[in-house]
Design a protein around this nucleic acid. Sequence first.
DNA 1: CGCTTAATTGAGAGCCTTCAATCATCGTGG
DNA 2: CCACGATGATTGAAGGCTCTCAATTAAGCG
Lengths: 261, 261
Amino acid sequence: MAQEDTFELFTRTAFGLEPGCPVGLRLKALACQQSLAKGGSATLDWSCDQVIFVACGATKLAAHATEDREQIVAFHFGGDVVSVPADGLYAYSLTALVDTELLAFPAREFFDQAAADPTTARALLGRLPLALHRCRDKAVALGQKSALERLAGFLLAMTERIGRVEGNMCLLDLPMSRREIGDSIGLTIETVSRQLGALRDAGIVAPEGRSRIALLDIAALRACAGFAEAVRDISPQKRKFDLDQCGTAVRRLRESETGGI
Amino acid sequence: MAQEDTFELFTRTAFGLEPGCPVGLRLKALACQQSLAKGGSATLDWSCDQVIFVACGATKLAAHATEDREQIVAFHFGGDVVSVPADGLYAYSLTALVDTELLAFPAREFFDQAAADPTTARALLGRLPLALHRCRDKAVALGQKSALERLAGFLLAMTERIGRVEGNMCLLDLPMSRREIGDSIGLTIETVSRQLGALRDAGIVAPEGRSRIALLDIAALRACAGFAEAVRDISPQKRKFDLDQCGTAVRRLRESETGGI
DNA sequence: CGCTTAATTGAGAGCCTTCAATCATCGTGG
DNA sequence: CCACGATGATTGAAGGCTCTCAATTAAGCG
């Protein structure tokens, strides 16, 4: 993908700007394009925050907590804008799950320009809270939910992002490994595998090969994830009843995933 | 605190705006002031996102995962701006830890006005990523760290926010209960108490009464929290060595807390 | 000073992790 | 096209950390 194409994709899809407009040109002057092969990590200036536009492909944003332990903070797909923190409490990295094209901007200068243009500013003020709220939902999952609940929530979140409907079920082609799933929801690869096996044995999902999963019963999966189903102003009795409807293999949880900025 | 005073505090401290300026007036038209007594929850329109300015006091933003289980997503203090999600996967609540004054805005209209004013937009584009990055650091703690690491990280984060230096140590007057600490870092009240006891026995902290904690050895506390100390471009040997310097009562983790937008 | 509530401490159980082995998948080369 | 090898995934057994349940102690308030 040529620099021109990538940048036009950026201005158009991310902010609804016409190519060649003043803001677009100023932002373009800041942009640094990168092509990452599967498994490659973005080369960024880690001394200051960055804003990344994922033109196409898929990436993971990971925080390195220990030499051998990383927490994946979010997954991103084509069209997403990612806010990448500078080195702070943890060292972060942005890694391509598949071949990926991206645009990198230094955050301060990027926001300086964006703030001056109402259209761009409004777009960012829409995306940033969304990413924040997704991250919070993730924190809820990591802090309060069981392994099964986290995995079910993960699958549902991924379905919303990259799921394809096929008849009366849903197909999911995951670009990430079991390890990356585990690193995302705070579980070991073995636990992920075991819980996936439980969902399979319950007839809720059907893994096909290494990366494809067919979702046979989304309602049951949602019950597994244990989200708070529009609970406000619903009587406790009714709420309790609904929660108990999940089957025997179903126990506790809830979750969210993938936060474009 | 009168409406006028609260609002002026808002425009001045949060955005550096002069009272009576055009944006200020338009934002004021959206504002809904609330005074919360300790323990009171904000009355908000949960059908749409809200932006809250905490004029003075302290609040917790909590997600209700289950009837008896809540995850505190962030603590806020005077001057903070909070992005509060509408009802989604979870029901959120904003509760006062002490008597608190706040201003509530509907998010969409708020951002519409803010985007039109470069100064306000720039201020928000500075605060939102900060809150996002804090939330991510919290996710790392919840997903990867041990109980001791989480508590140490919590204390350090709180120290940065509301700690007072007193001689060669630091005093911390926590406005939240043990239960709220636990709900914030994903632990039970008993585990919080036990880990705090471990830090006390190690001579690192000295609890005084229910809410005050004296931090006697911040370096040791930092070691307990197990943050990645500017690890990029440092040899593995050196890194390993540093990590092993933490004492016997010290094991694994790292953390962050309190995200004003 | 006594009461109510919060915090601490202890014992046992459960869930996830760790360690280890087997199996499957997929890319490569014959 | 099939066989092979390497890597990833699954499954099993044992252990550890945190949770749950329960009792005791302390703090703060009237």
